[in-house]
Structure formats: C-alpha cells, structure tokens
C-alpha cells in the first residue's frame, strides 16, 4: 500500500473561500460591516498520484468546504487549483464536466445522497448514458459489473434507496462515483454516519477499490484512527487552515503542532487501564465569523506566546523533511528544534 509515484496530480495553492452571512437589519442600521465566514484561508496542498490523503479536523474546520471546492461544487474566492496541469477553477461547461468525470466525490449522508425516487439501476444508468461511456446495449452489463465491484447483490438495480441499509447506500454512492471511471475520488466523511462495524467494511472496500483501480483518494474525516488506518499522508485542519501535513507515520508518532498533539490525546484509548486524564484542548472552537488574530489556535494553545497572537505561522517544513507544520515553536531554518515532549505524562 504505497503510492505508485510521488508526482502531484492535484495542486492546491492559497485556496480561500468565504461565505457571506446575512446581517440583521439592526446591524445594517448601526453601520456594522457585512459579516462573512472564512471557511478556508489560504489552503495549500498537493495530492500525489495514487496516494490516500487524509484530511482531519473538528467539525466546522472547513474540511468539507475544501472537498466541495475541489470538485467545484463551491467556487473558491481566490487561489489556484491545478489538476494534471490544467487550471480547474476557470473550467466551465464541457471542460468542467470532463474534469468532474476524472475527479469524483462520494458524499457523507447515506440518506440524502441518493434520489429517493430513482432505483439504483436508474442512478447508474443515468451516469453511464449522460457521459456516453457505454452504448445503451452495454449499459445493463456495466451496471451489473459496478454492483459486483462494490459488493451489492445482483438484484439491487431494481430497488429503491429506501430498501437498503446505510452501509449499502454508501456502496451505491461509491458505485455512482466509480461509474464514470474517475482517477481521483474525494470521500467526504464517507463512513461517519455508519455503525462502527459497517464502517470497517466500507473503508476496506474503498482500500480494495483503490488498489484495483489505481485511484487517488482524498479521505475527509474526523475519526483519527480511521484516517491513520487508510492514509499515506494526513493533513490536519484548524479553522480554515492546514496546520500540519505529514506522512501518517510521522504525524502520529511525532506530531509537531500543539493542535495535532491535542487531537491525538483526545482520541479514546482502547485500554481502560490507561485512563485519559489529560485535558485535551481547553475552550471552544472560536467562531469562524471572528477568527482570532495570528495563529488561530493561540487562545486554546497551552504553548502560546506573544508572537502567536501577532503573526500567522506558515505551513512549512520545520524539522524532518516532508513534515510540514504551521507553528512558531519550531523554527523552519534553524537546526535547533525545541524538544517539547508534550506527550509525556505529568
């Protein structure tokens, strides 16, 4: 399970997305400026061909917005998005359609992600017919192939979504995305609505399909253990920014950013004797309407110092190669690295 090569297939640079918030009449009378939610602030990352990139963070950190910007469901305000050398943000009409054929998305909610009035066969038939991937005579056979690929019974194509369980519906969602033979799959909280036992099945299906079809996968989730299980690299997001990006192994063994460390501490341990008594993160996630100055994490950070409140740290390699983080505790240029072993028990 190693990425086939290390060439980036998708390059994201400084992607920014804000959502306007309707201001109340009273605010307008008082002359307050129009509010907006900064969902993404200067997100940069590369998606390498054949890899699985995990995106983790608390709810509201912008990970779903990022996923939706990448498939052009949302139009980013600024920044660039390149896929295989093409600028994606400018695509329209036919070109956008062919981009979306190559980059597909699997959605989070097994209940609303399927049209309740279309049978599974109709859903897949539509995708195949619209993109003219098969002649009408070959379509029924291809539908059977797809159903088999995602492990659904043969007679599934006659049935409506309400006749399936949540896990089966996510399989249908995967089959729909795969029907157009994409190279890249963006899975937005693919299994977070499922029971743990079913989660494993669906995740393993995704891994198996990735191997068989040589897919590049971006796996957006909030479950750290899941992300650790399937990702080659992991990006940690906090309040619209990526705060740490590294190989899975390094990120979990030696996290640099205090937020990542806190996230790892907060993850429950299976061994009850090792009771988690440390406070993971204190305070609430700040409102994205009014993000803190400097490093957005500083009000909750146990290691914050003055510079954190003034300047925004850049995401860059600060220690080991290929391990990027956005924290002033680590100087990018100097060889000296603060060795704060924050995982040590008191």
């Amino acid at each position: 399970m190693k990425p086939s090569d290390h060439t980036p297939i998708m390059r994201v640079r400084d992607l920014t997305k804000t959502f306007p918030v309707a201001s109340s009449g009273l605010d307008r009378v008082r002359g307050l400026p129009a509010k907006s939610v900064k969902a993404l602030t200067g997100v940069s990352l590369d998606l390498l061909r054949g890899e699985t990139l995990g995106i983790v963070g608390e709810s509201g950190c912008g990970k779903s917005t990022l996923a939706r910007c990448l498939v052009r469901l949302y139009d980013a305000d600024s920044g660039t998005l390149e896929y295989d050398g093409t600028n994606v943000l400018g695509l329209r009409g036919k070109n956008l359609r062919s981009y979306n054929r190559r980059v597909q998305m699997v959605f989070q909610d097994p209940f609303s992600s399927l049209n309740p009035r279309m049978t599974v066969g109709q859903v897949l038939n539509e995708a195949l017919a619209v993109h003219r991937l098969r002649s009408s005579r070959e379509i029924p056979g291809r539908i059977q192939e797809l159903l088999e690929l995602v492990g659904l019974p043969k007679d599934a194509s006659e049935r409506l979504p309400h006749e399936f369980s949540g896990g089966q519906r996510q399989r249908i969602g995967i089959a729909r995305a795969l029907s157009v033979e994409p190279e890249t799959l963006i899975a937005d909280e693919l299994v977070s609505a499922l029971d743990v036992s079913v989660q494993a099945q669906v995740v393993n299906l995704l891994l198996e399909l990735q191997e068989r079809l040589h897919l590049t996968v971006m796996f957006v989730a909030h479950d750290l253990r899941l992300v650790r299980h399937i990702s080659h690299r992991v990006a940690v997001m906090y309040l619209g920014r990526i705060v740490e990006l590294s190989s899975t192994e390094k990120l979990f063994s030696s996290p640099e950013h205090p937020y990542t460390q806190a996230l790892l501490r907060a993850a429950p341990d299976l061994d009850p004797s090792r009771k988690n008594t440390l406070e993971a993160v204190h305070g609430e996630l700040p409102s994205p309407l009014n993000p803190p100055s400097g490093c957005a994490f500083h009000p909750r950070c146990p290691k914050a110092f003055e510079r954190c409140t003034l300047e925004v740290p850049k995401l860059e390699a600060r220690g080991l190669e290929g391990h990027e983080s956005a924290c002033f505790l680590y100087e990018p240029s100097s060889k000296f690295k603060l060795n704060l072993n924050l995982l040590e028990k008191p």
């Binding site: 498939v71 609303s112 992600s113 049209n115 539509e126 619209v130 729909r176």
Partner: peptide, 24 residues
C-alpha cells in the same frame, strides 16, 4: 446531497431540475 452529486456527475441544470429535484 443527491442534487450536489448530480452536479458533480456533470449533469446539466435542466436534468437536475426536471429529473431529480422536481419529482421530489
């Protein structure tokens, strides 16, 4: 999400409106 999926599938606006949204 099924309407968003339709957009990601590259369906035209009229297909999404008449085949997906209106029946619901």
């Amino acid at each position: 999400e099924y309407a968003l999926a339709g957009r990601v599938m590259g369906y035209t606006a009229s297909r999404i409106i008449f085949r997906h949204l209106l029946p619901n």
